[in-house]
């Protein structure tokens, strides 16, 4: 699978970007040249040898804040994607097998979440649960869960109705065995693509919430928070928002490119994601089938 993905240029670009972001996330706080929370007398200063990206409104080094803000920005996006994955995928698969009552209830809950205005709900829930990073992550994760629910449910339904699953069922296979052996591999590619996309969405949403003063409290640096405060001083430093924006853009772009690559590599069966050997055989079969379709008049055909 990894080899298949790595053959794609988009995947290479995505992984290179993600590697840089991971490096910044891990080493950022250590590499920060100044204390990201300590202000100085030089406020809103432009880039210089001392402060590469200048200083902010209370004289803090912008580069240090961006580096120090990386872990929280990235980890919170990962948390959001993880919460959404768990809350959405498991009920999505189970909704096909646990009977009509669970199916009806879970669908109504998901419909409700989809109908809720995203940021308004997030603001209301953090007001209810308290204004903290954990609460914000849970809320955003809950709101993104319907995406996973729908994707996993659709994929599960298509497998559940296939003849080989029906055959397995007639042969006495348990639901649990069917899910593990047949459903999971079919659902996984779609989930992997959704997960990569959600990471990007999570980063943007968390940035939006920080922008609204929800979730992460000052002076804790985050990319979204830095962007929000920079926008208040456009008259003095019009270029300041570019730095955090570029990082957010790069992270979102990398996630989306990776999602595309996974989708391309996984193909139709999704076996590629469950084992390299199976992936190779699947790929060979798929390519052979495509070749047949492309040239039915080939004399070499039996």
């Amino acid at each position: 699978m990894i080899r298949t993905v790595l053959r794609l240029t988009t995947a290479r670009v995505a992984l290179a970007l993600l590697a840089i972001i991971a490096l910044v996330t891990v080493l950022g706080p250590v590499l920060a040249p100044y204390d990201p929370l300590k202000g100085g007398d030089q406020t809103l200063a432009g880039p210089s040898a001392k402060h590469w990206l200048g200083t902010d409104y209370i004289g803090r080094d912008v580069l240090s804040r961006i580096l120090a803000g990386a872990p929280l920005s990235i980890v919170s996006a990962l948390e959001v994607a993880g919460i959404a994955l768990v809350l959405g995928t498991i009920p999505g698969i189970l909704s096909v097998y646990l009977g009509s009552v669970f199916e009806w209830l879970s669908l109504r809950v998901v419909d409700t979440f989809i109908a809720l205005p995203f940021l308004v709900f997030a603001v209301a829930m953090t007001a209810l649960l308290g204004n903290g990073i954990t609460q914000a992550m849970i809320v955003v994760g809950m709101l993104l869960a319907p995406v996973f629910y729908r994707v996993s449910r659709a994929a599960t339904m298509s497998v559940a109705r296939s003849q080989y699953v029906e055959a397995a069922s007639i042969a006495g296979a348990s639901t649990s065995w069917i899910v593990r052996s047949h459903v999971w591999s079919k659902v996984l590619p779609s989930i992997a693509v959704t997960l990569a996309t959600t990471l990007g969405i999570g980063l943007v949403v968390i940035s939006s919430l920080t922008f609204l003063g929800i979730g992460i409290q000052p002076p804790t640096p985050t990319w979204g928070g830095i962007l929000a405060s920079d926008l208040g001083y456009l008259a003095q430093k019009p270029y300041a928002p570019i730095f955090p924006t570029l990082l957010i853009l790069a992270a979102v772009l990398a996630c989306n490119l990776l999602a595309d690559a996974i989708r391309d590599a996984a193909g139709e069966t999704g076996r590629a994601l469950t084992g390299a050997k199976t992936a190779r055989s699947n790929r060979t079969r798929r390519l052979a089938a495509l070749a047949d379709l492309a040239d039915p008049a080939d004399p070499s055909r039996p």
Binding site: A127, N131, Q217
Partner: peptide, 9 residues
């Protein structure tokens, strides 16, 4: 610890 919230709360 800074704890900022919306006006209503």
């Amino acid at each position: 610890t800074i704890k900022l919230t919306d006006f209503a709360n």
